[in-house]
Design a protein around this nucleic acid. Structure first.
Length: 423
RNA sequence: GGAGAAUUGGCAGAGUGGUCGAAUGCACUAGUCUUGAAAACUAGCGUACCGCAAGGUACCGAGAGUUCGAAUCUCUCAUUCUCCGCCA
């Protein structure tokens, strides 16, 4: 959520900057400006009346004590009617608050200056590329490999849960677990504190990171207990910092968390969702930092480097793209996507997304730090996947296949306990 | 799942209808003293919003209510603790 003061002070600038996202926010900014103005008027009147009522109450108390019953009673009646009038103002004030917040929730973050304008992923800008496309002697897609080698049982997943819930078995399960361990170890080595968070979250946490109110259709919901299954560990881990004031000296906070992620992702079909490309349940290791505002862009670079390091250790041909405005997530000021080459599908697969949210999340979360002058300032938050497992697995299976086997990259061998999977 | 008790500022802990945003202690910050430190003393020390400011409003687990006036009374919910039941 943007700061009210930002909107109040620079409405035109916001409208202009949002064009990078390919959206026109003129209407919403006008609504917010009007609501904000009205709210402040009503608030001032309400508070003045409230003050008068409080003063009267004190006088009534004194009158009763000094035995002036008659004076007290008449003042009491007068105050009661004042209070009734003020109830109307207070009701209007609450309504304005709700309306204003509702509008604020629908305004996305302002893109950083370096974000290119654009409509969709076709306008993203490739900024780095590493390795090269492998030359394959066999080019089965990963879903065939996984099925033939009994690494993943797709039908069994359908039987137990439904489409999008694969069952990993044997070396498939082992590979998955090894990758998790590898990613977590690398994050901990880089100074991230490991967190094992709740997989279900309450409503307040959903609002804290912005999944609610807008994207509740994307989360699984447990009706009876009003809890949501997490779509990413970002949600529970970021909410660690909801309603907190951190000591400046304790910044940055660095956390990593492994978790299954649950996504309903309704309504998409075709090759983009085949095999491991898109699932209802998948596993991911997330990295997250809460930092001083002056540091956040430096930290963003560090996080990008961390993810690069992981992909290079896994010897996967990848590229980094800077998301254009139209493809940028709602809360992000800037995002770098990492895509690995899927050699049999012959397409790039997104495996990580690293973003700086600046104060957008912090404002909703009310996460501040006390600066050297003792004033509370909003922190900047950043997070990134490091990494999402299924597409890494897809790329590993496809890119490392020969006629007879799948080769495991060196860095991973100690984690999985085998150096190849025989066909 | 059942019964009981509790929830106040960073922590501990007073406060049961009237001037309480809240005593006191600890912690913390600044100063005095000291060669330095400790101790002692002095002062400061919650959050948010409105306001140029003076100042004002709100918040004592959350929400609703009673009252001229609520931390204090009523209702609903949440959480924690103790006991019983169940259980990986």
């Amino acid at each position: 959520m943007l700061l009210q003061s930002t909107i109040r002070n620079n409405p035109e600038e916001i409208i202009d900057r949002m064009k990078v996202r390919n959206i026109d926010v003129t209407d919403i900014i006008e609504k917010i400006t009007a609501l904000d103005k009205r709210k402040r008027e009503v608030q001032t009147r309400f508070e003045n009346n409230q003050h008068a009522i409080k003063e009267s109450s004190k006088v009534i108390g004194d009158l009763f004590k000094s035995g002036k019953q008659a004076d007290a009673s008449s003042l009491r009646e007068k105050t009661a009617s004042q209070k009734e009038d003020n109830k109307l103002l207070s009701d209007e004030l609450s309504r304005l608050d709700v309306d204003l917040l509702e509008q604020m929730y629908h305004l996305p973050n302002i893109p950083n200056e370096t974000v290119p304008a654009g409509k969709d992923d076709a306008d993203n800008v490739e900024i780095a590329i590493w390795g090269q496309k492998p030359v394959l002697e066999s080019s089965e897609p990963h879903w065939e490999i996984a099925k033939n080698l009994n690494l993943i049982d797709w039908e069994l997943g359908v039987k137990i849960a439904g489409a999008g819930f694969p069952v990993y078995r044997n070396q498939g399960a082992r590979l998955q677990r090894g990758l998790v361990q590898f990613f977590l170890d690398r994050a901990v080595e880089s100074g991230y504190e490991e967190i094992n968070p709740p997989l279900l979250i309450n409503e307040a946490s959903g609002y804290g990171t912005g999944q609610l109110p807008d994207k509740d259709g994307q989360m699984y919901h447990t009706e009876r207990d009003h809890l949501y299954l997490i779509p990413t560990a970002e949600v529970p881990v970021t909410n660690i910092y909801r309603d907190t004031i951190i000591k400046e000296a304790d910044l940055p906070m660095k956390n990593t968390a492994f978790s299954p992620c649950f996504r309903r992702e309704a309504g998409s079909y075709g090759k983009d969702v085949r095999g491991l490309n898109r699932l209802h349940q998948f596993e991911k290791v997330e990295i997250l930092q809460v930092v001083h505002p002056d540091e956040s862009y430096k930290v963003l670079d560090h996080m990008v480097d961390h993810v690069k390091g992981l992909l290079e250790s896994l010897e996967l041909h990848y590229r980094v793209v800077r998301l254009c405005g139209g493809d940028l997530g709602f809360a992000a000021a800037i995002t770098y996507d990492f895509e690995v080459w899927s050699a049999a599908q012959e397409m790039w697969l997104e495996v990580s997304s690293v973003s700086n949210f600046e104060t957008f999340q912090a404002n909703r979360l009310k996460c501040r730090f006390k600066d050297s002058e003792g004033k509370n300032q909003l922190v900047h938050t950043l997070n990134g996947s490091a990494m999402a497992l299924p597409r890494i697995m897809a790329a590993l299976l496809e890119n490392n296949q020969t006629k007879n086997e799948i080769n495991i990259p060196k860095a991973l061998i100690p984690y999985v306990g085998f150096d190849k999977i025989n066909k």
